[in-house]
Computed example of a mutant assay.
Amino acid sequence: MQNIGDRLEEARKRKGISIREAAEATKVRGDYLHKFESSQFDINLPDIYVRGFLRNYATFLGLPAEKIVNDYNALGHGAPAPKSVNREIYGRMDLSVSSSKDTARESADIEPEAAPGESDSDNPATFKPRPGALPYVDKALLIKGGAIVAAVVAIVLIVVVGVRAWSGSKTETPVDTPAATAATDPQIVIHALDSVRVKVVEEASGVELFQGAITRGDSRTFPKNGSLFLTADPMENIEVELDGKRTNISTEYGLRGRQRVRVE
């Protein structure tokens, strides 16, 4: 029976592409792909990143990604990942798992993703802790620094309160702007139930309408001129409002973690 590396290498050569071309398409470093094809998985990254890279590479090559990841887990590197949902349809929403081409394209923006609550500095792919103990910090210096920061914050608060009081005394006359008349156009509203990363792309034009973090209680409104691709990480932290109806995709269809859906 072929090992994981043999299957990856055979599939890549069958597609007639080089390691460099595969790395550009999947956004995974070429030296990692070369090690995978040699069945070497010690790339100084946590298992969650190794499994994510393996899944992307296998999907790009047209191999069964879950089978590759399960074989990797069978080697004792980690627990098997949960199976993903194939396809769900709700009303005018067409929810589907990204194709291999879309997955490779999306990985350039949000893969591999840090675990919930983990900042960029915690990403093992970009951060290496310095060896040795923490340096000595002068407590007196910390106290002085804290006093300076507190003074600056107090000044800023005073300025903000003054500006708001001055601006609140002004009477503003409503102006009929194009934005007001456009409120009747089709729209989709993303409501953040908790902190979440979101990306919205028009399907027809490929134009990216938004990509970034939305904090808890905040929302974003986008024009809906045709179908949209919506990517959220994690999906359970958003609700989608379409035609005046809000839907929790995660609750309705069990889509959890980073997911990509098509909204019509």
Rank of each mutant, 00 (worst) to 15 (best):
S18I: 07
R20Y: 14
R20E: 15
A23L: 00
E24F: 13
T26I: 01
R29W: 04
H34Q: 10
Q40P: 15
D42G: 13
D42I: 01
L45W: 13
I48M: 01
G52A: 05
N56Q: 02
L61E: 05
P64C: 00
A65E: 06
A65S: 14
K67Y: 14
V69K: 02
N70M: 02
D71I: 01
A74N: 12
H77R: 05
P82L: 02
K83T: 06
V85R: 05
N86A: 08
N86K: 12
R87S: 11
G91M: 05
D94W: 06
L95D: 01
S99V: 02
S100Y: 13
K101A: 07
S107H: 12
S107A: 03
D120E: 15
S121Q: 10
N123M: 00
P124T: 00
R130Y: 12
P135K: 05
Y136P: 02
D138W: 11
L142D: 00
L142H: 15
G146M: 03
A147G: 08
A150E: 13
V152H: 14
V156T: 07
L157G: 11
V161E: 08
V161D: 09
W166R: 08
S169R: 07
K170L: 09
T173L: 11
D176V: 01
T177C: 00
T181C: 01
D185F: 09
Q187H: 13
V189K: 15
V189L: 08
I190L: 06
L193P: 06
S195R: 14
R197M: 04
K199W: 15
V201T: 03
V207G: 02
L209R: 08
F210A: 01
A213F: 15
I214V: 05
S219C: 08
R220K: 09
T221D: 10
F222W: 15
N225Y: 15
L228M: 03
F229W: 10
L230Q: 03
T231N: 03
I238G: 03
I238C: 10
L242F: 14
E252Q: 14
Y253R: 02
Y253H: 14
G254V: 00
R260P: 09
R262C: 06
